[in-house]
Simulated scan of single mutants.
Amino acid sequence: MENVSSLAGGQYVVASEVVTPGRKNAGRWLIQLASLGLVAIVLVQILYETGTLSWGFENWRPVLYAFLVWAAALGAGQVIIRGEAGYRALFLLPALLFTILMVIFPTVFGLYIAFTDWNLSSFAGRRFNGLENLYALVNDSFFWNALGNMIFYVLAVFVQYAIGFGLALLLNADIRARKFFRVAFLLPFMLSPVAVSWMIGKSLMEYRFGPAATLARHLGWDSPAFFTTPWIARLSIVMMDSWVWIPFVMILLLAGLQALPKELLEAAKVDGATPWQSFWNITFPLMLPVSVTAIVIRIIFQLKLADIVINVTAGGPGGATDTVSSFIFREYRDRSNVGYGTMLAEFYLILIIIFVMLLLNMVSRWMRKV
Rank of each mutant, 00 (worst) to 15 (best):
V183Q: 07
V296P: 03
L265R: 12
Y207S: 13
Q258V: 02
A233E: 04
G272N: 09
P188N: 08
I251W: 06
S223P: 09
G210E: 02
P188V: 06
Q258T: 09
P211L: 10
M240L: 06
F189A: 04
I282F: 14
G272C: 05
M239K: 05
I175W: 10
F181N: 10
L288N: 12
F279N: 04
W280M: 04
W243R: 11
A233D: 13
D222L: 14
Q277R: 15
K269V: 11
I282S: 04
F181A: 04
L303V: 08
Y207P: 15
T229N: 09
P285T: 00
R176F: 13
S291Q: 08
A213P: 05
M240I: 12
I300Q: 10
G272L: 08
V196M: 13
V194S: 09
M250T: 15
A267Y: 08
L265C: 01
L260W: 06
A268G: 07
V249E: 10
L257N: 14
G201E: 05
G210M: 03
L288Q: 15
N281H: 15
A233I: 14
D222F: 02
M287E: 04
E206N: 14
V244F: 00
R176I: 05
G201A: 03
P230Q: 03
G201Y: 03
W280I: 13
P247V: 03
V249H: 10
L235V: 14
P211M: 07
L187H: 10
P193A: 00
H218P: 00
I295R: 09
A184M: 13
S291M: 05
V292W: 05
I200F: 10
G256S: 06
G272V: 08
R298D: 02
Q277C: 01
P211S: 07
F181S: 06
R234C: 07
F185I: 01
N281T: 08
L187F: 15
F226T: 08
L257E: 13
L288P: 09
M250Q: 13
E206Y: 11
G272F: 10
D222M: 07
A213G: 15
M287N: 07
D241L: 04
I299Y: 14
P188K: 13
A259N: 15
V196F: 05
S236L: 07
A212E: 00
V196L: 15
I295C: 11
L191Y: 12
S192D: 10
V238G: 01
W198G: 09
I237S: 00
S291A: 05
I297D: 01
F227S: 00
L186E: 04
